[in-house]
Simulated scan of single mutants.
Amino acid sequence: MDTQIGEANLDWIPLSGFHLRKAGVQFDAVRIEGDAGRCVADLMEELTGGDPGPIVADSVGRRPVYFLVPPRSTPHRPWPELAVPFNSGPDRVSYVPVPALCGRTWPLSWRCVPSGPDRFVHTPLLNSVVWRLREAGDSGGRRP
């Protein structure tokens, strides 16, 4: 059975619980931990009118936030140290936790659910927001 959102078939979303998905196949991801990740998610929602693309939040440990971006969009882009890209290549394999759309998925949840099969977080916009957040942090500011 496949997961459906509207007319979109998103078979990479599990029906229950959560699964690890190999980055670089359906999507890459960028992980940002703690309050910085939540701040970036807030800004992405604000900048995109509430539809930034799929974002997964983890509620334990360092409380990372995973921004799902198009496959192969992270490796050749510089990221500040607070952002960890998840992708795959000849010498690298990464896995991203993906929760079901409903039911028991703790400690993971969808901050923003996927809205279509090719609808992801816009990588250049995310990269820009993360760099601005880093610069604001370096200068003592709270938001970019």
Rank of each mutant, 00 (worst) to 15 (best):
P54K: 03
D11F: 06
S16C: 07
R142Q: 13
V93N: 04
G61R: 11
G50Y: 06
V30N: 03
G116M: 02
C102E: 14
T48F: 07
Y95T: 08
R31Y: 01
R104I: 11
P71W: 01
D35S: 08
R132E: 15
D118M: 08
R132K: 13
V121G: 03
P80S: 09
L15V: 11
C39G: 04
D2T: 14
P75V: 04
P114Q: 02
G137T: 11
L82M: 15
R21M: 02
R21L: 02
R119H: 15
S16G: 06
V121M: 02
R92G: 04
F27M: 00
S16F: 13
N127E: 15
H76C: 06
M1H: 14
W110Y: 13
A136F: 07
D35Q: 11
R72E: 01
P114H: 03
D91V: 09
W131E: 05
R142N: 12
V69M: 00
R21G: 01
L68K: 07
G103T: 13
L68I: 06
P124R: 06
R77L: 11
P124N: 04
V60G: 00
A83E: 12
P85D: 02
E7T: 13
G116A: 13
A23P: 01
E46M: 15
A23T: 01
P14E: 12
D58L: 03
S109F: 15
S94P: 02
T74L: 00
G89S: 10
D42R: 07
Q26M: 03
P71V: 04
V60P: 05
P97C: 13
G137N: 14
H19T: 10
P78A: 09
P64Y: 02
L47I: 04
S59M: 08
W12S: 09
V30T: 00
A36Q: 03
E46F: 05
A8I: 12
W106R: 13
P117L: 07
G103V: 12
G50M: 09
E7N: 15
A100W: 08
P78D: 10
L47A: 06
V25Q: 00
G50R: 04
S109T: 10
S94L: 00
V60A: 08
P144V: 10
V25D: 02
G89A: 10
A57D: 10
C112M: 11
T48Q: 10
V130I: 15
G34Q: 13
F67Q: 07
S59Q: 12
I55E: 08
A83R: 00
R119Q: 11
R38T: 05
F27A: 00
R77V: 13
R63Y: 08
L133F: 12
S115C: 09
N87P: 00
